[in-house]
């Protein structure tokens, strides 16, 4: 399965996201917004990387969600294609309504509000599988309660849901796939770090697994365990797990 990492004007994490996907074995390449919807023909899986697509105008992800190239992703997702959105990519997926996917198509049922601190936050964060592994196609091979390291780097990471009915469905259908270990640093409802859709083929994850996806990016203590081992430092580790799971879906 060929994977497209879609670059919007304002994306800023496309290179490392592509590297992480490739390191996990995905047959991935960058597709730029100006290549248009037609360029996505032949791709069967999609990753939306982090950044500030279309300057985060109106709301983070709101304009990108209406970018013509995203309409092709929406179509594919509705037919079961695996779609992973990271940070700004997650914001875009929420703005398309694909996640939590509990309302009518194209109508957002959630939003990523500004962090409760009112400003950007950049720090290491661990996320934990909060549902049974079968809930989402990307987590099928994870152990229950598995933890994945990531970096939370965002100004608007606070998952909020449209209304009580949506909140209820998110709870009932177990759509909050990952929560933050130790609680959401940004005030997200349900401590949500990653949200899926009812069919489990779309995953919107706020913290960046590709920023903790190699040993050299890990917290000091984890790095130190492999000190002096150059190959180990350069090897995929931690957050790369999420990309391996993604690649396994495609295999």
């Amino acid at each position: 399965m060929k994977t497209a990492v879609i670059v919007f004007p304002g994306s800023n994490s496309e290179e490392e996201t592509l590297r992480a996907a490739q390191a996990a074995g995905a047959d991935a390449r960058l597709v730029w917004w100006f290549e248009g919807r037609a360029a996505l023909k032949g791709f069967e899986a999609f990753i939306l990387p982090g950044g500030f697509a279309h300057e985060d105008r109106i709301r983070a992800g709101a304009v990108a969600a209406r970018d013509p190239i995203v309409s092709a992703v929406i179509d594919a997702a509705q037919h079961g294609a695996p779609v992973l959105g990271i940070c700004n990519g997650a914001q875009i997926l929420v703005e398309t309504g694909l996640v939590p996917g509990t309302g009518e198509a194209g109508r957002p049922q959630a939003a990523l509000a500004p962090n409760i601190q009112g400003h950007y936050l950049d720090h290491f964060a661990e996320i934990e599988l909060a549902v049974s592994p079968e809930r989402c196609i990307f987590t099928r091979h994870l152990a229950a309660g598995a933890r994945i390291p990531a970096w939370a780097s965002h100004g608007e990471g606070r998952f909020r849901f449209r209304d009580e009915r949506t909140r209820e469905r998110v709870r009932e259908e177990r759509l909050v796939v990952f929560t933050y270990v130790g609680g959401a640093p940004n005030g997200a409802e349900f401590d949500c770090a990653a949200l899926t859709n009812p069919t489990g083929n779309v995953l919107a994850v706020m913290p960046h697994p590709e920023r903790a996806g190699w040993r050299y990016q890990q917290p000091e203590r984890v790095r130190f365990e492999a000190r002096g081992d150059r190959a180990a430092y350069l090897a995929p580790y931690g957050g790369s797990h999420l990309f391996s799971l993604f690649a396994q879906v495609l295999a």
Partner: peptide, 19 residues
């Protein structure tokens, strides 16, 4: 203060600012 800044974009950071 530093947490206002993105220290890890590009995926190349080994020792982040402040560490």
């Amino acid at each position: 203060l530093i947490t206002h800044y993105d220290r890890v974009v590009r995926g190349t950071t080994v020792i982040p600012a402040g560490h």
